[in-house]
Amino acid sequence: MRVFWEMTKRSFQRYLTYRAAALAGLATNFFFGLLRMAILLALYGERPQVAGLTVADVITYSALSQALIGYLSIFGWYDLMNSVYTGEIGSDLLKPLGLMRFWLAQDVGRALVNFLLRGVLIMVAFELVVDLVYPQTAVSWLHVLCTLILGWLVSFGFRFLVNLASFWSPDARGMGRFAFLSATFFCGQLMPIRFFPDWLQGWLQFTPFPAMFNTTIEIYLGTLTGTAVYLALLNQLLWAIGLLLVGQWVLQTAVRRLVIQGG
């Protein structure tokens, strides 16, 4: 565990040195957030509420959909893939942590830096120009904290699995691009899942995608209440565990293959 925290700390410091790049993306995210808000408001027209979301809710949704891009690496994450292609994976295999925990530690650092530099700053910027809604009670904030962490875990599990494809195919990058793109749509980052037709919402229930992003939004906005919150958190937790277990299993197969075939 100490090794894990050491790794996390180092990763955090490493990503902190890239802060210029993280900050540079702020303006674009902010601009796209404004456009998303305008589009949603125009869709609403005179309606005060649609599918349980008020106007203030969708404004906040638009802000969050931009604020969490960096934290969740929504547009893609290829670090593990790259280390497979460059062969760095060999030395990573020798590290005292398991490969998955090694990358998990890396990702904690990456996510934290992005959360603080991009996420929080974007929310502050939006707070200055539009009316955002916030959770009302300490307990709700606690729920938000849990769902943020679980959402990140689910997203990590998914991204890790996608990256593992590089052990089998020399062109996993194209596949990955496709996978991340679809995830952007299915997780509710382009539009709240509540607005989708019922048949699509039904299908998405059986996928991990809503647990990455949409659940977090719903809990933050308070559209889920009472036991529904705990069920949603449990759902996220189960997806996280499931994806990580599958990832671990696939990883073992991949490493065995790598060791036997010598890469």
């Binding site: 589009i39 125009a42 869709l43 609403y44 027209g45 309606r47 649609v50 599918a51 496709f178 793109l181 679809s182 952007t184 749509f185 382009l190 539009m191 607005f195 989708f196 037709p197 699509l200």
Partner: peptide, 20 residues
Amino acid sequence: STIFLEFASLALVFQRFETL
């Protein structure tokens, strides 16, 4: 697909909103 999914996300919610 980038274009398709982005447009689809808009098209799919239109039945709830009717107009933009």
